[in-house]
Structure formats: structure tokens, C-alpha cells
């Protein structure tokens, strides 16, 4: 298993090694030590590699991940797993703002809290947060699921499109065009499935409330101008 020490190895070498995995290679488990808040760690992965990052990372860790499995044994800076395509990213600690921004697929699990704008502009990614999320989360969320076991901050789901939001705790306030919606059987099933994928036990789907788009801003109407 390649161990890359970012205290001595340049970031560029780590990422280019991750981009140059030969087809059928068995050497696909990487360990990264001494990340010390570095930016752009393990970005642009396009193969089913496993990366264990021992420590905290800066901006955009696992950005655009496509098929890799990245675990951060620490906390993550802004934009972790931004624009993820597929695969899995797990943050053992907390995540800063913009976690999972514009993600199109795959699963992002945050075991601690996520800060503001978690799931901003999400486009198909599934995000599971064990703790709480900050303000303006799922802003302009287009598709995918955001599951929060704790509480949500202000303006949840502002200008939401079709992303589905599930919160177990309290929601400080809902953003424009976001409303609580009925929890139907398919949503309970989906939640159970996401719990399984995220390795969550001891939590029941029935404990969550669902939030989605009120769809009032889908076509412009001057009488909704106060919402802009």
C-alpha cells in the first residue's frame, strides 16, 4: 500500500499517482499522512481507489471524485467532495462550508457537523450528516438527498429545485420556496437505504421530516418578487 507523506511529497505527485492507476492494478489502497490542512488532496480520482487521509484537510478534498473511496480521519475544509460524480467520501470529523457542492452522484458521509451551504447546488449526490448543518444548506439544490441527523441552520433549502432534504432535529428556518412535505413510504425506504450505505444504525426513518421545493419560483411571477 503506497503511503504518501505530504510533509515531504509534493501534492502534485499524490494527485498524479492517483490519476495514473493502470487498469487491473491491485495497488489501489493509498494512505496519506501529514495532510495538515492541505488543499486539493486526492482530487480528480477516476478509478476505484481507496484513500485514507490521516489528519485534517483544507479546501476541496476529493473534489470531482469519480469512483474512489476517500476517508478523511480528521476534519475537512471548504468544498469537500465538490462536484463528486460517484464513489464515497467519509469525513470522520467536521466539514466546513460548501460540503458536497454541486455533487452529481456518490455518497458523502460527514460524521461530525457540516458548516454553512452544505449541499449547495447539489445535482444528484447523497449527503448524510451525523451532526448538524449550517445556514443556507442545499441552496438551489437540484437533485439528490441530504440527510441530517442533527439540526439545520437558517434558510434551509432556499430556492430549492428537486433535491430532497430530511432532517431529524430542528430547522431554524426554511429558505424561500422550501416547505415541509409529507413523508411517503418511498421516502422511508430511501432513508433506510441511505442509512445502510452510510453505516448508520439505531436511527429510524420515521424520526425525520422531509423538506422539498414548494415550486412557486419555478416560473416567474411578479407577485412572488418578495421571495427573491
Amino acid at each position: 500500500m503506497p503511503v504518501i507523506d505530504l510533509a515531504i511529497t509534493p501534492l502534485r505527485d499524490l494527485n498524479s499517482a492517483l490519476h495514473a492507476i493502470p487498469q487491473g492494478s491491485n495497488d489501489i489502497a493509498f494512505e496519506v499522512v501529514n495532510p495538515r490542512g492541505s488543499h486539493a488532496v486526492a482530487v480528480g480520482i477516476d478509478a476505484p481507489v481507496t484513500v485514507d487521509v490521516k489528519g485534517s484537510v483544507g479546501y476541496y478534498c476529493a473534489g470531482m471524485n469519480d469512483g474512489g473511496s476517500v476517508t478523511v480521519h480528521g476534519s475537512a475544509g471548504p468544498g469537500v467532495a465538490e462536484n463528486m460524480m460517484s464513489g464515497k467520501v467519509v469525513i470522520e470529523g467536521d466539514a466546513s462550508q460548501y460540503a458536497g457542492a454541486t455533487g452529481r452522484g456518490g455518497l458523502l458521509v460527514i460524521k461530525g457537523n457540516a458548516a454553512s451551504r452544505c449541499g449547495i447546488s447539489m445535482k444528484g449526490i447523497d449527503i448524510v450528516v451525523h451532526g448538524s448543518i449550517g445556514h443556507m444548506s442545499a441552496f438551489m439544490g437540484q437533485s439528490g438527498h441530504l440527510v441530517v441527523l442533527g439540526d439545520a441552520g437558517e434558510a434551509l433549502g432556499d430556492s430549492l429545485y428537486e433535491a430532497k432534504l430530511f432532517v431529524r432535529g430542528t430547522v431554524k428556518s426554511l429558505g424561500s420556496d422550501c416547505m415541509e412535505k409529507e413523508m411517503r413510504p418511498e421516502h422511508l425506504t430511501k432513508l433506510a437505504e441511505l442509512f445502510e450505505m452510510a453505516g448508520i444504525t439505531g436511527v429510524r426513518p420515521e424520526e425525520f421530516k422531509r423538506y422539498g421545493s414548494a415550486r412557486k419560483l419555478y416560473n416567474f411571477n411578479i407577485d412572488n418578487a418578495d421571495a427573491y
Partner: peptide, 22 residues
């Protein structure tokens, strides 16, 4: 401004780390 700035502080591994609310 970033977590990187804090990594050398004594006992940072066990600190309560958070982002200030707006």
C-alpha cells in the same frame, strides 16, 4: 481563515473546532 493556520497549536487534536455563525 483556514484550519491549516491552527495545526501547529498545542493540543489542537483535542480542541473544539467550529466555524463562527453568520
Amino acid at each position: 481563515s483556514e484550519y491549516r493556520a491552527l495545526v501547529n497549536l498545542p493540543g489542537i487534536e483535542k480542541a473544539r473546532v467550529w466555524e463562527p455563525e453568520p
